[in-house]
């Protein structure tokens, strides 16, 4: 087995809420690996902690109110990111690990040209001259498929469409040829046709540059097309983890089942209202008060006494060892997999 590029172990990121209503346990003991060159998808509804997980890797969580608990461990290329001093951390940010965000409209600085913003990372990390950085920026713009890059390099973000801006974000992230790209809902804010183009672009660049991608999304459809493996998150925890094909063919966690049932299919009428998963009843609980026992039990059609009392660990679901894990008591008692009347 190859050595993982990124190793996340028992990551806990909590937020102290204002006015003393308690601590929001946004990410509560998350563990996963990213292998070199692969695409790992992290899926879940909004509020499940997937964005906080991605921000925690580069320590971009605003502190306060947030903080990563001691005992958490994030290892990248053999070094623990959580104990690096600021200078060492900066040498990784934007250089070895780069990130693109959900909102291309607000994630670019409105007062600098896109060329300057792309070139900046190259200047900071690779100590290239302004001139060289500028031609790197033009080259990156061409790489991400922006027409007339020589002209576009001097444009400001507001002169570009949403899809173009996301391409610029990608160019900016990849200018230093990172080993890992974290893409947090990269297409959510875009039109459907543009979405497909951006995903295709990420796939192509991943193949060309040989980097790993951590793809964070609420959309299983995107995962199905791009990811090698999938981590499903619910209520700050990993609830299921499997190779993409396995997950779609044999979802074991009731929450994954629900998610899959809500993906629109050609052979069935669309079941998903925008942003809301219709087939799973109820809502994600507040991060300040996760339910006792299994955190999914209030919404689970199979829940029984044990689920309400005892929190399940990640259990191995068989198949090739260590590939498919599920946080559900059903694995110990498969006969209960019949919905309550």
């Amino acid at each position: 087995m190859t050595e993982p590029l990124l190793r996340v172990r028992d990551l806990k990121t909590y937020f102290v809420t204002e006015h003393g209503s308690g601590t929001a346990r946004a990410v509560d003991g998350v563990t996963f690996d990213v292998l070199p060159g692969e695409t790992l998808g992290i899926v879940g509804e909004s509020g499940c902690g997937k964005t906080v997980t991605s921000l925690s890797i580069l320590r971009l969580i605003p502190e306060p109110p947030g903080h990563i608990l001691p005992g958490s461990f994030i290892e990248f290329e053999g070094r623990n990111l959580l104990t690096l001093d600021p200078r060492e951390l900066r040498a990784i940010r934007g250089n070895r690990i780069a990130m693109i965000f959900q909102e291309p409209m607000t994630s670019l600085n409105p007062v600098f040209t896109v060329g300057d913003q792309i070139a900046e990372a190259a200047i900071v990390h690779h100590q290239v001259s302004r001139r060289a950085a500028r031609s790197r920026a033009i080259e990156m713009l061409r790489l991400v498929g922006i027409p007339d890059p020589d002209e576009r390099v001097d444009h400001y973000p507001h002169q570009m469409s949403g899809g173009m801006r996301q391409r610029v974000m990608i160019a900016m992230a990849l200018v230093c040829r990172p080993q890992l790209l974290i893409a947090d809902e990269p297409t959510t804010a875009l039109d459907v046709t543009i979405q497909a183009q951006i995903l295709e672009l990420i796939d192509r660049l991943q193949a060309e540059l040989g980097m790993a991608v951590l793809l964070i999304t609420h959309d299983l459809g995107i995962v199905a097309g791009s990811a090698d493996r999938v981590v499903v998150m619910y209520a700050g925890q990993v609830v299921e983890q499997a190779p993409t094909a396995t997950l779609f063919a044999r979802p074991l966690h009731p929450y994954t089942e629900g998610l899959l049932a809500s993906v629109p299919r050609l052979d069935a009428p669309p079941a998903r209202a925008r942003g809301r998963l219709r087939s799973i009843p109820g809502q994600v609980p507040a991060a300040t008060a996760w339910p006792e026992g299994c955190r999914f039990h209030p919404r689970c059609p199979y829940a029984w006494d044990r689920c309400r009392a005892e929190e399940p660990p990640l259990l191995d679901a068989g198949g090739e060892p260590g590939t498919h894990a599920v946080r559900c008591w059903l694995l110990t008692d498969p006969r209960r997999r019949t919905p309550h009347p």
Partner: peptide, 9 residues
């Protein structure tokens, strides 16, 4: 975009 700038290192 301030977060973007931090993420750039």
């Amino acid at each position: 975009f301030v977060r973007t700038a931090r993420a750039k290192g």
